[in-house]
Amino acid sequence: MSDFVTLVDYLTTAPENPDFHADTLLIAGNSLPYLIISAAKFCETTAEIQRVIFVGGFGHGTAPLIANCQKSCPELVRPEWEQLSEAEIIKEIFSYYCLRDLLLLLEKHSTNTGENARFSYQLFDHEPPQKFWLVQDPLVQKRSHLTFSKEWQLPLSAIQPLFFEQPKLIEFDHRPYFENEKMDMWWTADYFLSLVIGEIRRLKDDENGYGPKGADFIPHVDIPEKVLTSYRRCQKYIIGNPRI
Rank of each mutant, 00 (worst) to 15 (best):
F217M: 04
K41S: 02
M1E: 12
G59W: 11
S144T: 14
A14Y: 09
S95Y: 01
D206I: 12
R118F: 08
A47G: 08
N180D: 15
R243G: 01
A87L: 09
Y210T: 03
W81K: 07
K108D: 15
Y96T: 15
I90A: 08
S72L: 15
K131H: 07
A117V: 11
Q160G: 10
Q235I: 12
L146T: 00
L146G: 01
T46P: 10
E171V: 10
F94C: 00
T45G: 01
T6V: 13
A67F: 10
L25A: 13
F164S: 08
F217D: 02
I200F: 01
S157R: 00
F58A: 12
S31W: 00
L99V: 11
N17F: 02
L104W: 00
Y210A: 11
E207C: 06
L139A: 04
Q130L: 14
L162H: 10
V140C: 09
L35I: 12
P219Q: 14
N112K: 10
G57V: 10
A158M: 01
R202I: 14
E199Y: 06
N112D: 15
I93H: 03
L156W: 05
S38K: 15
K131M: 02
R78L: 14
F58N: 14
E199H: 09
G209K: 04
W186P: 00
S72I: 07
Y237C: 09
I223F: 00
C234M: 06
I223A: 02
A47L: 09
P212G: 11
L169Y: 03
I197G: 02
E86I: 12
K236M: 02
I89T: 11
S230W: 10
S95W: 04
F42D: 00
L11T: 11
L25Q: 07
I93R: 03
C98F: 00
G61Y: 06
Y231M: 02
F178V: 04
S31M: 04
G240P: 12
G29A: 13
V52N: 04
E88P: 00
F178W: 04
W187T: 03
S110F: 01
S38Y: 00
I159G: 02
D173F: 02
S120H: 11
A14E: 11
P128W: 02
E151S: 13
T188I: 04
N116R: 12
D190G: 03
K91N: 06
D9I: 05
E88C: 07
R232D: 05
G209V: 13
E16C: 02
Y121D: 02
I170S: 05
V227Y: 06
K182S: 08
Y121F: 09
F94D: 08
G198N: 07
